[in-house]
Amino acid sequence: MSDESTDPKHLDSGEGAPVPDKETDSAATRTDDDPRSSDAAQHTGGGRVVELAGADSEPVQIGERRGMFGATRGQDTSGYGGLVTPTLLPGASPRPYGGYYDEVADVLATALEEGAGFGAAVEKVVVDRGEMTVFVRREHLPSVARTLRDHPSLRFEMCMGVSGVHYPGEAGRELHAVYPLLSITHGSRRLRLEVTCPDADPHIPSVVEVWPGNDWHERETWDMFGIEFDGHPALTRILMPDDWPGHPQRKDYPLGGIPVEYKGGTVPPPDQRRAYS
């Protein structure tokens, strides 16, 4: 299928990466010729339901909104100023997740039994708006990632990068790294991994070993959010200059900008304009 001899040396870490079958995208006609599949292919899918004991199905509060209309500048004369609305992100989802998500969760649970165990590695599973997010504890990210990539019934051979999100209101889990995964072998199945780390200790293990294509994506997330990906071959800034202070995409980093004068009026910079969010 591929010529190993022409592989450049820096692709070494990805050499063992599974390669999707050229013939088809569907799982039905896929052939398991991979030697790795022999030991783990016994899983039949379904039948046993894994529940996470510690998973909290309560929504996660990341902040709160005051007042009725979202205005934060100036006096609120609406009478609704005392209204406090929590901002809630969806919590852990109960079974069944729907679609192929149950199968993915079952296979992952079985595959992880030999290692850390599903309950230890996975914090919670959130299915929201038809998308599945697996919250992985950061110390178990490399093993979970490798399992997701290599297990013949999972085969998430593509990781579409990593996107950071900064939630200053979520104490102890301020920084999130979000990994969208794609399985070409199983007909473009998608899955999302989410890993959190506290602002005070912004370390997450790198997945470049598993998905070499995440090299630049992790550098970007380090550049923009200050998440240090341990084990990355060269974690340097990529978009900002090397000596840039701060990490621009964090919420406590100002947008910057200057007021613009136009026809006698002054337009303030975007972050100082009236807002209703």
Binding site: L11, A17, P18, M158, I184, W211, P212, G213
Partner: peptide, 24 residues
């Protein structure tokens, strides 16, 4: 030259991936 192994490892998609014969 970049074969299928290289494309998948590097997360390459689009015409570059399709030039390896994978109809993704």
């Amino acid at each position: 030259y970049l074969d299928l192994t290289g494309c998948i490892a590097l997360g390459v998609t689009g015409p570059v991936l399709r030039s390896t014969g994978l109809p993704h």
